[in-house]
């Protein structure tokens, strides 16, 4: 069953993204709170990637790639806030910024490599 491609194409009442959005938030929170930076970065990647995927799936974005960049912007701002304001938690801030950078990079790379697909939209 799960070998069939295009889940959300075929099954209108199913979407794989919400589960991972919901999983990304607690992982990221745990990572940021306890300073477990790999968890912070990974959770945010999971969250951001799934948000982009869901936005694409539901038609708010045409490709996930630009959505990834859009998600990265507020994350970068949040991370910068952690580093540069009186919150003053630089390590955690840099972790958030790192997640933002990875997301943005994925978005840039993705759109660079998928230009050929654009005409189908």
């Amino acid at each position: 069953m799960d070998a069939e491609p295009g889940l959300s194409e075929q099954y209108r009442m199913a979407s794989p993204w919400p589960l991972f959005i919901a999983l990304g938030i607690p992982i990221a929170e745990l990572g940021i709170l306890f300073g477990l930076l790999p968890l912070a970065v990974g959770g945010l990647l999971l969250f951001g990637g799934s948000v982009a995927g869901m936005a694409t799936e539901s038609g708010y974005a045409r490709t996930p790639w630009r959505a990834l960049v859009v998600v990265a912007i507020p994350l970068a701002a949040l991370g910068a806030g952690f580093v540069f304001t009186t919150i003053n938690l630089p390590n955690r801030g840099f972790a958030i910024v790192a997640a933002a950078v990875i997301l943005a990079a994925a978005g840039v790379v993705g759109s660079a490599f998928n230009t050929t697909n654009d005409p189908t939209y």
């Binding site: 799960d2 491609p5 295009g6 194409e9 995927g53 038609g59 708010y60 045409r62 189908t120």
Partner: peptide, 19 residues
């Protein structure tokens, strides 16, 4: 494996309403 990311077709004209 379950999502064919390239299979998306444009949804409705503007596609602003997911549901």
């Amino acid at each position: 494996r379950i999502e064919n990311w390239r299979s998306y077709t444009p949804i409705g004209g503007g596609g602003a309403l997911g549901q």
